[in-house]
Amino acid sequence: MRMGEGLHMGRYYVPLSGLIPHDLTEPVWAGDYAFIARKWDVSIFDWAELQSKHKLHISYTAGDLLLKSCNMEIAVTASSVDDARDKILAFHVVMYARGFHPFSVQLVSSYSINDYAGICSRKSSHGLELLPEGMRTGITSATDCVEVWPAPYASGAAFRKEALARTVTHDLLAQVVDDIDRWNNLRSRYPVCRFLERVLMSSPVVADTGQSLLHVWTGLESIFPKVQSEVSFRLALYLAQLQSPLGDRQDFFQRAKRSYGDRSKVAHGGELKSRDGADPWMEAWSILTHTVRALLNRQCILTEEELIQELLVAADASE
């Protein structure tokens, strides 16, 4: 069953820019998701064929440009384009929580890149002979209809941050799918998770690093809406306690407090400066993504009062 047929489940293919596949010789499936390494180029003639004989909701020249930076794609099983969008977004969130470099969704299609590559040449026996052997069999305009939609949301990075991971492996997918289930459970219970999704997607595409850092902190502050006084101290304390199952609370507290100072500096017209080689934007982004990781681990969002109670109980237990 292909896409666009009522509420029946179909597969949607999503080329990604910014990630590098490793040891993905064949599609790897886990749950509703798959990793697929790109095998073939899609020529401008293939795109022209798609424009004239298929269903493109973007221009073929835009499609040609967007795919040039893609080394892989994910596939999702979904009932509609909107359903696919939610599943793609959840994938994006948990990849960021796992420390991956901001990457971009380029488009969505009803067939894999590897399926429609060579579709123009397969129209004739002469064109077929010119293709590599692996491309000679595949879909054609006579038997199949490829549909292509624009990316469902803006994503990626306006600047490069090389310290973050890019390589996607065979073993990663099952872990990611488990995290997606956890995230879906969280966002069904806590509306703030939807806001965090938007912050995670939009912050890296803001070209001005100071404004991007402010946006990151908008997400962090949304988790604790009651904090109105002693903001720097209390936010850092709550974030550190939220993180406690995963690491050093004292270190996280100091990092969050310093990063909130960067946020305040930008908000009052100051300029960001590195401290001992540390990138202020990376520090804020790391605090945000580690916070999402902590939420996935806890499977709940504790209130300020609950975090203080948890902190006091831990202090009593250590005496």
Results as ranks from 00 to 15, higher is better:
131 L>V: 00
132 P>I: 10
132 P>Y: 08
134 G>F: 02
137 T>Y: 11
145 C>E: 13
146 V>G: 06
147 E>W: 03
149 W>I: 07
149 W>N: 10
151 A>N: 13
154 A>L: 12
155 S>Y: 11
155 S>M: 10
160 R>M: 04
162 E>G: 00
165 A>P: 01
167 T>I: 14
172 L>W: 07
174 A>S: 15
175 Q>C: 12
175 Q>Y: 09
176 V>N: 09
178 D>F: 12
179 D>M: 15
181 D>W: 15
181 D>K: 14
181 D>V: 13
184 N>S: 03
186 L>W: 04
187 R>M: 04
187 R>W: 02
188 S>K: 02
189 R>L: 06
191 P>R: 08
194 R>W: 08
196 L>D: 03
196 L>Q: 04
200 L>G: 03
201 M>I: 08
203 S>R: 05
206 V>A: 07
207 A>N: 07
208 D>H: 14
211 Q>D: 05
211 Q>I: 08
215 H>Y: 11
216 V>H: 00
218 T>L: 09
219 G>K: 04
220 L>S: 00
223 I>D: 07
224 F>T: 09
226 K>Y: 14
228 Q>G: 10
231 V>L: 02
232 S>H: 01
237 L>M: 12
237 L>R: 10
241 Q>P: 05
241 Q>Y: 11
243 Q>Y: 11
244 S>F: 14
249 R>L: 10
249 R>P: 11
250 Q>F: 10
251 D>P: 07
255 R>S: 06
256 A>R: 03
266 V>F: 01
270 G>Y: 00
271 E>D: 13
272 L>A: 01
273 K>L: 07
273 K>V: 09
275 R>V: 15
276 D>Q: 13
276 D>H: 13
